[in-house]
Amino acid sequence: MNNFFKISLYTILDQMRSKSFYVLLGIAVFFVLLIRGCYKADFLVNGELVDSVTLAWYASRVAFHLIANGMILMAALLSMSIFSRDESNGSLVLFLSRPVSRWQYVMGRIGGTWVLATAFMFILHATIFFITWIKTGGVIPGYLTASLICSLNLLFIILLVALLSLFMPDFIAAMMTLTVAAVSFLSDGVFLVMQNRAVQATLSENMFAEPTLWRVLFPKISLLQHYAVIHITGNDFQSMGPVHPLLNLLAYCLLSAAVLLFNFNRKEI
């Protein structure tokens, strides 16, 4: 087996040895299961009783976003001490004193963390998917596909935290990455709100300026999540600028990986 896969596997096993991982997974599943109550409750909207299928549909969408956003935080936490922990517990020397190239080590660590975070998110989304199925008898099409699309966001977060942690303390690296995510949600969120016809009707025309260049080029974390949800709702997707958020995030992932590898190759062990 290639060293990249071996190190990815060790990364998953090491993370899963940590008790805090199971505590987080347990808390997340518990909150997801709490949502079950929404499917049976009676809700009145404008004096009319909302049927359980419609309710389940909206609750599942809200849960989708909550899980995807929560996993961004989780991915930052999982990845923030990849290198410093290996340096302090001797794993770095273990790997690099053997015929393992630095790119295999770095990408193995990143790959393992990504697979674990993606699996974590997929389990939570799948839990919602099956609860909805059992409670309403209806399958939400595209729900699990949307979950997999959002995994690209997790890869970007992991890469960025790992890259920044080469230059600054782990916690600051995680905070800076979460700030990037927050800015993306703000910028993309404003754009999405502006696409709403009801909003457009209430605002004057001069308020609909094209997004500035930095907003078009900024990592499209939120817009990718929105694009993923389109697979559930079936609505039309309006991209900000000429570049699709999938390509935007893919480009950022490749760029982060390249800069990370370049800098790690120059690192003194």
């Binding site: 090491d14 302090s88 517990n89 001797g90 794993s91 020397v93 273990l94 004193s97 053997r98 015929p99 393992v100």
Partner: peptide, 14 residues
């Protein structure tokens, strides 16, 4: 590094 065995000073194990 094929065929190298290394023991570091202040060796640590996870």
């Amino acid at each position: 590094h094929q065929g190298i065995g290394y023991l570091a000073e202040n060796h640590r194990i996870p």
